[in-house]
Simulated scan of single mutants.
Amino acid sequence: MTILLLRVPPPSPTIVFSYSSSPRSTTRSLNLTRRVRCRVSNSTEVEGASKSEYKPGVLDDFFMRSFRNKLVEEVGSDSDKPGYVGLIELVKLLLLKSRTRSETNDAAVRILKSLFPPLILELYKLLIAPLAQGKIAALMVARVTVLTCQWLMGPCKVNTIELPNGESWESGVFVEKCQYLEESKCVGVCINTCKLPTQTFFKDYMGVPLLMEPDFKDYSCQFKFGVAPPEDDGSVNEPCFETCSIASRRKLNSGECPMS
């Protein structure tokens, strides 16, 4: 999930969540209310995947703390685990609390918006996004993503992408092995709390089209700033991993979940 400008360990132990009794209203801004049966696939599991290594920078603790605080505000409770493991527990709780994909997307977009002063987003969309047919804004956010989000995604770099019109821009970000997906071991977490809301956030609130292409076989991910997502995006219907704790919990409870 891109954050300012916006690891898979051995099988995770069972996680315990505490729920808040205070309800929170959600704003439905996406027309995505379909519920899908959980499916389990062996073919999408990465065997022997190892954690990507990233040496934290000076500001990484601040970024993680800010993101975690916003997650706590949204779900109404905190995890008793520290660091990245606790962060992923909160993300899973966000997905478990939502009844539909739309609710999860709306909540994740609210979290992204809350990390920015509103005026900055408005000015960027108004003044920067229109320049050079969107190229300048796309190049800028790609570089800021690499500078500020490796603590969340792992090692990544700016690369060149092809646009539908044949042009080539250095507005891509290639994530070698996304630790967000590694740690969660959940396709639904990737699609519904990262890919879809991040694409929505950049398009609607920064004026920058974005297509994210996660690879569920090697955990890599290609960001394409300046490229709009296709209407029929096959990645959102990928079955979840066999080891996904959310899929198993949902199957036991209701058989349905806002998964991919």
Score class of each variant (00 low, 15 high):
V236G: 01
V173W: 03
L131I: 11
P130E: 00
V173D: 04
L210R: 02
T26S: 12
A138G: 04
K125W: 07
C38M: 11
D80E: 13
E73I: 08
E47I: 10
P197E: 08
L123S: 10
S12G: 00
D106V: 04
P13F: 10
C186N: 02
C221K: 05
V46M: 15
L123H: 02
G234Q: 14
N105P: 08
F225Y: 09
D80A: 07
R7Q: 14
S20E: 00
S77D: 03
F216L: 13
P164E: 04
D60I: 10
T44F: 09
T33C: 08
S43E: 13
Q199T: 11
L30A: 10
I136Y: 08
N31F: 01
P164W: 08
L147V: 00
I15S: 12
L4H: 10
S254R: 10
S77K: 05
G48F: 06
S98D: 14
K51R: 11
T148S: 12
S25Q: 12
V91I: 14
T14K: 15
S20R: 01
N253R: 14
D204C: 02
A138D: 00
T160F: 00
T27S: 09
S79Q: 02
G154D: 02
V72C: 07
M259T: 14
S220E: 01
D232C: 04
R28F: 11
E45P: 08
G226V: 07
T148R: 10
T193L: 08
A49C: 14
E170R: 08
S43Q: 09
L210W: 04
T26A: 14
V36C: 09
A228H: 04
T104C: 14
S79N: 01
D80Y: 13
V144P: 05
D78Y: 06
D80I: 09
P10I: 13
F241V: 10
V72S: 06
I15L: 04
G83H: 02
P130S: 07
G86R: 10
F17H: 15
S171V: 01
P9Q: 08
V236L: 05
S41G: 15
V236Y: 01
A142C: 03
P117W: 08
R143I: 03
C221F: 00
S25K: 08
R65P: 00
L127I: 11
V141N: 02
L211P: 01
S29G: 14
S77Q: 06
S21L: 13
Y180A: 02
K55N: 12
E170N: 13
S22I: 15
N69I: 03
P197G: 11
T44E: 03
E256K: 12
V46K: 15
L112Q: 11
S220L: 02
P164Q: 05
F241W: 06
S171Q: 05
L112S: 12
L112I: 13
K157Y: 01
A247P: 07
M206C: 15
V236N: 05
R7E: 11
K113Q: 12
A247W: 07
L181Y: 03
G76A: 00
S18G: 06
C149V: 07
T193I: 04
R65T: 13
F67H: 04
G57D: 07
C244L: 14
Q179S: 13
